[in-house]
Amino acid sequence: MIRLLARIGAPALGLLAVTGRLAIFTARTLSHLARPPFHGRELGRALFQIGWLSLPVVGFTALFTGGALALQIYAGSDRFGAQEAVPQIVAIGMVRELGPVLVGLMVAARVTSSIAAEIATMKVTEQIDALVTLSTHPLKYLVLPRVLAATLVVPALVAVGDVIGIMGGWIVATERLGYVSGPYLRSSLDFLERVDWISSLVKGGVFGFLCALLGCWFGMTSGRGAMGVGRATKGAVVAAAIAILAANLLLTEAFFAA
C-alpha cells in the first residue's frame, strides 16, 4: 500500500515542484518588464520570427480547415435540412475555436520547438554562460523578448487565421456547394458578435504567451548534449500543446459558459 502511494506521490510531488519552478521562472521573467535596459532589437527579431514567418503556415492551416469545415457542416446539416446555417457555423467555429486553437498549435509546432531548440543549444554551447559574463541577464535578453513578442503577435496571427478560415469556407461553399458569394459572406459576418472576436484574440494572447514561455523554460532547463536538446524540444512542444488545449477549455468556459 505504501509502495503504491509512493508511486503515485512521487510524480505528483515532482509535478508540483516543476509547477512551482515554472511559476518562479515566469515571475522573474515578467519582473524584467519593469527594469531597464530593454532589448528592443531582440524584441523586433522575435516579432519578425514569430509573427511574420508564421504567416504561411497559419494561412494554409486556416484555409484548408475552413474549407473542410464547410464541407463537414454542409454534409451534417443536410441530414436535417439546415444548410442555410453553414456560413454561420463555419464563422463561429473558426473564430471561437478552430482559429485560435489551430494557430496556437501551429505556433507551438513552429515557434515553441524553435525557441526550445535554440535556447537549449545556446545552453549546451555555453552561450548563456557567456551572456552572464557579459553582464546580460538571460531572462531579460532571451526570454522576455520572445514571451512579449508571442503574446503581442499571436492574437494578430489568430485574427488573420480567423479571416482566412472563413474565406476557406466561403471558397468551398461558393465553388463546390453552390452558395451565393455575397449572402454567404454577409451571413458569416453578421452572425458574429464582438465577444466572439474578443475571445479569439484573448485566446491568441494567452496561447502565444504559453508557447513562448514553455519554449524558453524547456530550453533554459535542458540537459546536456544533443539528447538534452532533443528532449527539451519535444517536451516543450508537448507541454505547449497540452497547455493550449487546457487553457482553451478554461477560456471558453470563462467567455461562453451559460
Partner: peptide
C-alpha cells in the same frame, strides 16, 4: 563582471 572578459572552450559566440 563589467571589467571581466572570458574565452570559453568552444568560443560560445552568439550564433544569431
Amino acid at each position: 563582471l563589467r571589467r571581466f572578459g572570458m574565452l570559453f572552450q568552444g568560443g560560445a559566440l552568439f550564433d544569431s
